[in-house]
Design a protein around this nucleic acid. Sequence first.
RNA 1: AACCCCGUGGUGUAAUUGGUAACACAACAGAUUUUGGUUCUGUUAUUCAAGGUUCGAGUCCUUGCGGGGUUGCCA
Length: 562
Amino acid sequence: MAKQQESTAKKDFIREIVAADILAGRHKTTVTRFPPEPNGYLHIGHAKSICLNFGIAQENQDSGARCHLRFDDTNPAKEESEYVEAIKDDIRWLGFDWKDHLYFASDYFDQLYNWALHLIGEGKAYVDDLSAVEIREYRGGLTEPGKESPYRDRSIEENLSLFEGMKNGEFDDGIKVLRAKIDMAHANLNMRDPVLYRILHKKHHRTGDQWCIYPTYDYAHGQSDAIEGVTHSLCTLEFEHHRPLYDWLVGNLPVPARPRQIEFAKLRPTYFLMSKRRLLEMVNEGHVDGWDDPRMATLSGLRRRGYPPSAIRKLCKTVGVTKFNSVTDVALLEHAVREELNKTAMRRMVVIDPIKVTITNWPGGDHVEMMNAVNNPEDTGAGSREVALSGEVFIERTDFMEDPPKKYFRLSPGAEVRLRYSYCIRCNEVIKNEDGKVIELRCTYDPETLGKNPPDRKVRGAIHWVSCREAFEADVRLYDRAFIVEDPAAEDDWREAINPHALTELRGCKMEPVLKDVLAGECFQFERTGYFCVDSKHSAPGKPLFNRTVALRDSWAKNQSK
RNA sequence: AACCCCGUGGUGUAAUUGGUAACACAACAGAUUUUGGUUCUGUUAUUCAAGGUUCGAGUCCUUGCGGGGUUGCCA
């Protein structure tokens, strides 16, 4: 059933192309790839590409489809192996598996080099002595054609020997490059004799000092796809102008297959900074607590924040795949997160900012009653638990108002409210300190209201509470969106758009004692407050730190702020 | 005033490929509720513009307008 729905589901334009190719028998099987550069952490934008590439492979596994994980490690100046493992972890966490199809572009350096020789032999590539600035000048502009390099017509033999010299380390960085010989007047700047190889005397994270020339992205990518038998090479819109070059290269080289590049629009959620460079700045300048800070758009940050991978997959499904340069409202993400967590998170009572309530007619100071609390109303299999109630409890400061507005259902002098899963209480007396701050409420409870409503009156509010004596204290971090503007990248300085309230640290919040023994990463709903997850970085056994993933919808607060 | 891509409610996506413009989110209103949560019901609101082809156009054609991308030895 589910499978049928999957297959009859609306296909995006890429899946339509894949389906048509399968129908036409154009390839033996479908092969996609996810090609991260190991120079940083994956972020939510990458999730879209991961879901697309691995998703297509999954959906077509009956016909042998697969998705490769290939690290695009052609620039040793920026890449490090520490990122490789982090990227793998993130992909697995998102729920995808490359099986034994793990590759590196650097695996193909020999083949790529030989193909460069082939291009030179065909008179389709040459060694250029122009400097980087000269190459730029010669390239021309958007409206002017370029000029041919004076080195463009070197003989094949000279090119061959020069290129070998480059490989053998006879030249310093930047002295020479290998260029394709295409057309300096082409309307597409990428076709004006693009650079294929540059000299870089840098240690590579996998090949060490074996090479001092490295292929550019343009030269490496399509050929790597061809080597692996990739049929559909899916990338983002900014590579559109590179497609003619991609096609030129696989068309002019004796590659074993003809992959096809198709571009789609990136995922751009509001209130997030997405570029690797900016993310790096946030970390290096100390605006956040590392790459996995819960305010970051990185997958590791979202994970630490408590966003379930299924919610991220759901978001990717919702936004679809098109060529339209869209902006995705974070509300879509937050909705997906709440939807998932509502179904799965255990409910617990936690008082973030307490006021003490003394129940004056409670029978005896030591008297304790165990209240039965449902673990998750959305999941009957989740069972229930016992929560201790005594004569002294904490309630939320925001659940009491001395002078309440109309339709305030919580506690106020003379008013009655239900302690969730327990009795109704009425507030008789408000005790303040000399500053006028409320420090205690003296209430009476109605013993006839356990599990039933009083027959003669309506008690509309139900508030959460924690028994003072049984309370377990732990710290909580309230996270909010990291920026105050929808598109921080559009600001002159994104730093000025940082949300100063994106993190509120609270100490010693009052919790149900069962919250003492929890596992890193576990998610809960603190009733009436929000979804929280156990921080994986700063928690210790018996001493958890809770991160707020997302607040519960709050139509009362929304109404009040109007 | 170059070239390429893209324009469907506030946001994102769909429309059996030329046949009544729909779904999700958001917003708003109401119902239910021992979470002001969840759930349920309803409301507002859409084909960038102008021409053309056609019995019929979101879909095809032309022009215009708007948005994005492109001048790395980054990917």
